[in-house]
Design a protein around this nucleic acid. Structure first.
Length: 762
DNA sequence: GTTCTAGAAC
DNA sequence: GTTCTAGAAC
C-alpha cells in the first residue's frame, strides 16, 4: 500500500521504510530508533475519531502495537473522564504501545495533560485534526445509532454545535511534534493508511501538514434541527420580501449618544462610576457574563402602549430575578427623556426590585462598554420577523455595529422569528461588536405590533398583545439565563467535555426538530385511585364556604380528594398510597406521580386550602411539614442514591388543602403528559419550601407572583434550560441531560441529594 | 387533578 | 396516517 497514494503534500510518507519492519514489541520500537507515538485525535463527535482509531487497530499494520484510549467507553457504561484516559494512556505507553487517544481534545486545556504525559515518557505526540465541516459532524452524530457514548439524536447536534464554538486549533507550541489536518474522508483514509504503515522503527516528519486558512467556524445547528416555515404557514408578521421593518421611529444619532455618556436617568452621576460601584456592592466581579442589556420591545415603531409595556417589563423582570439570584438586567434607551425608562424605573422601585440587579440606562446599546462603562456580554435586539438587518432603530444599530458576522451567524441559527419568542445567536469573535464591546451573544426578540402601518397589527387587542409581550420578555430572559448559566458552568467545570450543558435556539415556536426521537407515548394507563374504605356518605360536600377558609377559590368535587383525606385519614389508612399519618399531616404517594418518586405531604389543618391562606402563625406547621419532607427524601435516597429531590408548593394548586410536593428531579413518569405538568414543577409556579418558609417568616405571607400564565410557557429543560418543541422531545432530552442544575437551585438546600444530605453514596 | 377527543402538526 | 396539544367535561 502506498500511504501517499494521492500525492497530497498534506499526507507525507513515513521517513523510514516500512517494508520488512521488525516484529512488534516494546523492545523493537526502541531498537529501530523510532519512538512510540501518542496520537491525539482532535475532532468533535461525528468527525470519525473512533472510526479512525478502529481502522488502525484493525488494520494490517506494520508491526507497531497500538492501543486505543477512548473516553466514551473507558467508564464501562458511565461517562468516562480525562483522568481515566490519562492513566490508560500512561499504562499503554509503559507497555511499549503507541496510543490513539480517542476523545474530542478540542480545547488546549483538554490536550495539555496528554502533552505533558508525552514529554515525561519521551514519546512523540502527534495531533491528527479531523477537520470536517461542522454540518457533516452534526449530521453524522445526530443520525447515528448505538453510539458508544450514547451521544446521538437532537442532543448530539447541540453538543457538537457547542463544542465547535470552543475549538482551539492545535499548535506546535503546545508540544506536538507533528500536526496533521484532515479535511475530508479521503484525507482521513490517507492518514489511516500512513499510521497503519508506520513500523516500530519508523517515525514521521515533524511539522504541520494539511492546514488551510479558515475563517471562524460557523456552525449551523438549526439547519439540522429546524425546518424553515413557508411564508403561507407562518403565523408571524408577514411582509413582502422588499419591505423593511424598522423597529423604532427614532433613528439613532450615534454622535449624540456618545456625548450623552450613558447617564442613568435617575441619578446624575457618571454611569461608569455607578455601574462599577454597583458591581462591587453586590454583584460578583465576572458579572459581565451575567448581565443582559435589552431595549424596550414593541414600544417604538410597534406603538405598544408605554404604560402597559412598563408593567409587563417590571413583572417579567421581577419573575426572572426571583428565580435566578446571580444575574443583572439593564433596560437601555437612547433618549435622556425616555418615558419608558422612567415608567419602568418608578414601577420597579415600587415593587422593591433590587436596583443593583435591575437598572435603567441611557445610552447606545451598541456602545455600552466603550462609551457607557457598562460591561455586558449579552445584548438583546428588537429584531424583525425575518431576522434581517436594516430598518431602523435598535435593529439597524446592532446589525451595523456587529457587521456581516451577525447576519451570517443569525442565518445559521434561524430564518424567522415569531412574536413572543427569541433566538440566541453567538456572536463570532471577529465581529467588531465582540471585539470592541465584548458582546458574545445577541438575543433577537420580537414583540407584538400595534402599528396599523406594520404587518400583523393586533388592532389594539391588548389582551393578546400583553400576552405576547410578556412571552417575548420571558423568552428573552430565559434565553439569557441559559447563556449565563452555561458561562458559569464552563468556568466551574472543564470536564468531561460531553457533560457540559448546551444551549440551542431558545424559541419553542421557531424550534422545529426533526422527528425521530424515541418516546414512549403509550396511552394512559388507568391509575388506581385511593378509595376510602368507609361509605362515601361521610364525605362532606359544600365545605368551600366554611368559616375559616380565607381563599375565595371554589373547588370542584374532583379537587376535594386531598381535603377529604386530610380531614379523615382513618378512612384511607388501608390504602397502599398512604405512607404516614400524624396529627399534623398525611404523607402519601401521588396518585399520578410526575417522577420516579413523588409524594405529597398534606397538611391536616382545616382552613388552609393553599399557600395563599398561610400566615405567620402557620410557620411551625410549615416547618413540621418541611422536616417530614426532608425525612422522606432521605429515606428515598437511602433506597436510590442517584435521585435528587426538590420540596415545594404549587403557587395555585388544583387540589384543595395545603400540600407539599416531594419530587425527584428525573421527571421520569408516564403520568407527566403535558406542558402544565412540566411547568408546574420547573418554573416559578413551583415555590421551594425553604423559600416559602423564609418569605412567611419575613413578610407574613408567601410571595405568590406566578399565575397560570407560566404554565403555558415554553418547555425548557430544568437543568440546562434548553427549549424543546413538545413533551416527547423534552422527555427524550431530560433522560440524557447531565448538565448541572441551575445555580439558584444549588443554593439554600433547594435540592436534596445524597451529597447534600451527607450520605454515603458508595 | 384526569380523561376524552377534535383538529393541528408533522 | 400518526403524533401531539389543548380545551371541555368531570
Amino acid at each position: 500500500m502506498d500511504p501517499d497514494g494521492g500525492g497530497s503534500p498534506a499526507v507525507p510518507t513515513p521517513s523510514a521504510s516500512t517494508a520488512g519492519a521488525p516484529d512488534a514489541g516494546a523492545a523493537a520500537v526502541e531498537e529501530g530508533g523510532g519512538k512510540q507515538v501518542l496520537v491525539v485525535l482532535v475532532g468533535p463527535p461525528g468527525s470519525g475519531k473512533s472510526t479512525f482509531a478502529e481502522a488502525i487497530l484493525g488494520g494490517s499494520g506494520a508491526g507497531r502495537h497500538w492501543a486505543r484510549v477512548c473516553q466514551d467507553t473507558i467508564g464501562n457504561g458511565k461517562a468516562g473522564t480525562k483522568i481515566q484516559c490519562l492513566k490508560a494512556a500512561a499504562d499503554a505507553l509503559k507497555e511499549g504501545k503507541s496510543v490513539l487517544l480517542d476523545r474530542c481534545n478540542l480545547e488546549r486545556e483538554q490536550r495539555a495533560d496528554f502533552l505533558k504525559l508525552g514529554s515525561h515518557v519521551h514519546v512523540d505526540v502527534h495531533a491528527v485534526v479531523l477537520d470536517l465541516p461542522a454540518k457533516v459532524c452534526i449530521s453524522r452524530s445526530v443520525n447515528r445509532r448505538g453510539h458508544e457514548g450514547n451521544l446521538q439524536g437532537g442532543m448530539a447536534a447541540m453538543v457538537v454545535n457547542r463544542m465547535l464554538k470552543k475549538k482551539e486549533t492545535p499548535l506546535l507550541t503546545e508540544g506536538f511534534s507533528r500536526i496533521m489536518f484532515c479535511k475530508d474522508d479521503n484525507e482521513i483514509k490517507k492518514a489511516v493508511d500512513m499510521y497503519n504503515a508506520l513500523g516500530p522503527s519508523d517515525c514521521l516528519d515533524p511539522g504541520i501538514f494539511g492546514q488551510t486558512t479558515k475563517g471562524p467556524i460557523q456552525v449551523g445547528i438549526m439547519k439540522f434541527l429546524k425546518k424553515p416555515e413557508s411564508s403561507e404557514k407562518s403565523s408571524g408578521p408577514k411582509v413582502t420580501p422588499s419591505e423593511s421593518m424598522p423597529q423604532m421611529q427614532n433613528h439613532f444619532s450615534k454622535q449624540k449618544t456618545l456625548e450623552a455618556g450613558g447617564t442613568c436617568p435617575v441619578e446624575g452621576e457618571n454611569n461608569k462610576k455607578k455601574i462599577e460601584e454597583q458591581s462591587r456592592e453586590s454583584i460578583p466581579s465576572d458579572i459581565s457574563s451575567r448581565t443582559l442589556a435589552f431595549p424596550s420591545i414593541s414600544t417604538a415603531d410597534f406603538q405598544f402602549d408605554l404604560d402597559r409595556a412598563s408593567d409587563i417589563i417590571v413583572d417579567a423582570v421581577s419573575i426572572v430575578l426571583q428565580k435566578y439570584d446571580n444575574i443583572r438586567l439593564v433596560l437601555v434607551d437612547l433618549s435622556q427623556r425616555s418615558r419608558i425608562l422612567s415608567l419602568v424605573k418608578d414601577k420597579a422601585a415600587k415593587k422593591n426590585i433590587n436596583s443593583s440587579r435591575f437598572l435603567t440606562f441611557v445610552g447606545d446599546i451598541t456602545q455600552l462598554h466603550s462609551k457607557g462603562g457598562l460591561r455586558c456580554n449579552v445584548i438583546a435586539n428588537a429584531a424583525n420577523w425575518r431576522l434581517k438587518p436594516g430598518g431602523g432603530g435598535v435593529n439597524a444599530a446592532i446589525y451595523n455595529a456587529a457587521g456581516e458576522d451577525l447576519h451570517r451567524a443569525t442565518k445559521e441559527c434561524a430564518d424567522t422569528l415569531r412574536p413572543g419568542s427569541s433566538v440566541t445567536v453567538p456572536l463570532p469573535s471577529t465581529s467588531p461588536l465582540h471585539q470592541r464591546e465584548g458582546v458574545t451573544h445577541i438575543i433577537h426578540v420580537l414583540g407584538p405590533n400595534m402599528n396599523p402601518m406594520r404587518p400583523d397589527c393586533l388592532k389594539n387587542d391588548y389582551t393578546k398583545g400583553s400576552k405576547i409581550l410578556h412571552e417575548a420578555y420571558t423568552s428573552l430572559f430565559e434565553s439569557f439565563v441559559a447563556i449565563a448559566h452555561n458561562s458559569c458552568i464552563e468556568k466551574q467545570n472543564t470536564e468531561p467535555v460531553l457533560e457540559k450543558p448546551v444551549t440551542g435556539v431558545t424559541s419553542p415556536t421557531d424550534l422545529k426538530m426533526k422527528r425521530g426521537c424515541s418516546y414512549d407515548s403509550e396511552r394512559t394507563k388507568k391509575h388506581k385511585l385511593v378509595q376510602p374504605n368507609i361509605p362515601s356518605n361521610q364525605a362532606r360536600e359544600g365545605d368551600n364556604k366554611r368559616s375559616g377558609v380565607t381563599s375565595t377559590k371554589t373547588w370542584g368535587s374532583w379537587a376535594q380528594a386531598l381535603y377529604e383525606l386530610a380531614m379523615h385519614p382513618e378512612n384511607y389508612k388501608n390504602s397502599d398510597s398512604i405512607l404516614e399519618i400524624s396529627d399534623d399531616f398525611v404523607v402519601l404517594n401521588d396518585l399520578y406521580p410526575k417522577a420516579k418518586r413523588h409524594v405529597l405531604i398534606v397538611s391536616r389543618r382545616d382552613g388552609l386550602d393553599s399557600l395563599a391562606d398561610v400566615k405567620k402563625e402557620h410557620l411551625p406547621l410549615l416547618r413540621t411539614i418541611h422536616s417530614a419532607g426532608v425525612k422522606w427524601a432521605q429515606k428515598f435516597l437511602e433506597g436510590d442514591s442517584s435521585l435528587v429531590f426538590r420540596l415545594g408548593y404549587h403557587s395555585v394548586p388544583s387540589m384543595r388543602q395545603l400540600h407539599l410536593h416531594i419530587i425527584s428531579q428525573d421527571f421520569n413518569s408516564s403520568s407527566l403528559k403535558n406542558k402544565k405538568h412540566w411547568n408546574s414543577f420547573t418554573t416559578t409556579f413551583f415555590l421551594d419550601s425553604v423559600d416559602v418558609i423564609e418569605e412567611i417568616n419575613q413578610h407574613g405571607s408567601a410571595n405568590i407572583s406566578s399565575d397560570d400564565r407560566v404554565l403555558a410557557m415554553e418547555l425548557r429543560c430544568h437543568r440546562c434550560r434548553s427549549a424543546h418543541p413538545n413533551i416527547p422531545k423534552l422527555k427524550s432530552h431530560i433522560a440524557n441531560c447531565k448538565s448541572s442544575f441551575p445555580y439558584h437551585l444549588l443554593q439554600k438546600d433547594r435540592l436534596l441529594s445524597s451529597s447534600t444530605m451527607h450520605m454515603d453514596c458508595s
